[in-house]
Amino acid sequence: MAEPAASPDQQTLLKTPLHAEHVALGARMVPFAGYDMPVQYPTGIIAEHNHTRNAAGLFDVSHMGQAYLIADSHEAVATALETLVPADILNLPPGRQRYTQFLNDEGGTLDDLMVARSTDPAEDGKLGLVVNAGCKDADFALLRDQLGDSAQLVVAADYALLALQGPLAAAVLADHCPDAAAMPFMASHRSTFDGIAIGLSRSGYTGEDGYEISVHNDKAVALWRTLLADERVKPIGLGARDSLRLEAGLCLYGHELDPTISPIEAGLIWSIQKRRREQGGFPGASRIQREIAEGPARIRVGLKPEGRAPVREGAALKNQTGETIGVVTSGGFGPTVGGPIAIGYVPPALSADGTGLMVELRGKDVPIEVAPMPFVPHRFHRS
């Protein structure tokens, strides 16, 4: 049967190395960050969400930006990167990765990213970066323009990225990669999968235990098919990826984070280690230090609407007198929670769990309550 002709918009979309695999599995493909990506497979978003919570879900996240930052030593490359991010990269141990943000001069967030340090002494001046798909071109330009000769940026465009997430992820991966099960949360190193060279980190975006696997484009299909041959593993699309991260209370760039929102407002003070809080030396440090000392003007909170109808991004949050005091940044149905959930920003005085607010829904104001996050407890492998 001939494939339908692609529309002009479809023709301009980029494709990951696994695009044909998604189409063959019957995925519904949608534009996302310039890529043609699977939003769901025939079983549907709720089934995919529940499978990830109970077994192991496999995600194609190859649209993300992978790169390496290289200098003569770890001290040199870490010092260079610390001029752009607030995390303590200098004291990042070998074989570990750290979550941080690119900030602008006003302390707003340009993107959030992961930074990993190699375990190989011969690569001690090399840091691995994973940035968001929609921001990667701007991120890479920022690194090149701001760091100049102090560090070299090498974009790993020839590598795919897969995420295996869920309570059975470790058991599944251990069948092909024996060193995977012993890795603690946020560990990162090079390994092999049935003889295929991979980069492996124990991390993810679902709140579940799991891994992210970097593999050369030429080997991505083989790895994907091998994992899906395991009955414990099912393919998962962007729809369930979002409902999982929403239940986990995790930030999504462009929603909970943007160039006006600081990491302190977003509840990410834990990602700025003590040395950097005290010494500064990164863009927007004065705002970050002021908000740490005095408190921010707004705070990211979890929200539970009354009833069964979900609220969406952009909905106005109001106090009991009808005054607009905040905004919803993400919202939807939480399959594990069994009802609608949301994330938004409110003033500190209205941020306590249980605070009653109102939210605009279909032209009417309905009750919504500040709720603790995560909505579903994290199950990261901490030992």
Rank of each mutant, 00 (worst) to 15 (best):
T83Y: 01
M64Y: 08
V77F: 03
V85M: 05
P94Y: 00
I70R: 15
R98Q: 13
E75V: 13
S62A: 05
A78F: 00
D88P: 06
V77Q: 08
D88K: 02
N91M: 09
V61T: 10
H63Q: 11
D72V: 13
A55D: 11
P94A: 14
D60Y: 01
D72F: 10
V77L: 03
A87C: 14
E75Q: 15
T83R: 14
N91P: 00
L90F: 11
G95C: 05
E82G: 04
V61C: 09
V77R: 04
G57S: 05
A78V: 01
I89N: 01
V85Q: 01
Y99A: 10
P93I: 08
A56Q: 04
H63L: 15
Y99F: 13
F59G: 00
E75D: 15
R98I: 15
P94K: 09
A87N: 10
I70T: 15
D72H: 15
Y99V: 05
L92C: 02
S62K: 00
D60W: 00
A76L: 07
D88A: 07
V85S: 03
R96Q: 12
Q97F: 10
M64L: 15
Y68M: 13
P86N: 06
I89K: 01
I70A: 11
R98V: 14
Q97Y: 05
L58G: 07
E75A: 14
V85F: 06
G65N: 05
A80W: 01
A55E: 12
D60R: 03
H74L: 07
A80L: 02
D60E: 03
Y68G: 08
G65H: 04
Y68V: 11
P93W: 01
F59P: 00
P93T: 08
G57T: 03
T79L: 01
D88M: 03
A56H: 03
S62C: 05
H74R: 11
P93V: 09
A55I: 00
V85H: 02
I89D: 01
D88H: 02
V77S: 07
Q66H: 12
H63E: 10
H63C: 12
G95P: 11
R98K: 14
A71E: 08
E75I: 11
V61A: 12
L81G: 04
L81I: 01
S73A: 12
E82Q: 14
A67D: 07
E75W: 10
L92R: 00
E82I: 02
R98T: 14
L69K: 05
I70L: 13
D72L: 13
L90D: 05
D60G: 07
P94L: 02
Y68P: 00
Q97K: 14
L81F: 02
S62E: 02
L58P: 06
L69M: 08
P94G: 08
A87Q: 08
M64K: 04
S62G: 12
E75H: 14
T83E: 13
L69V: 08
R98A: 10
G95W: 04
H63Y: 11
L58S: 06
F59R: 13
V77K: 06
Y68N: 13
A55Q: 15
N91Y: 11
T83H: 10
L84Y: 03
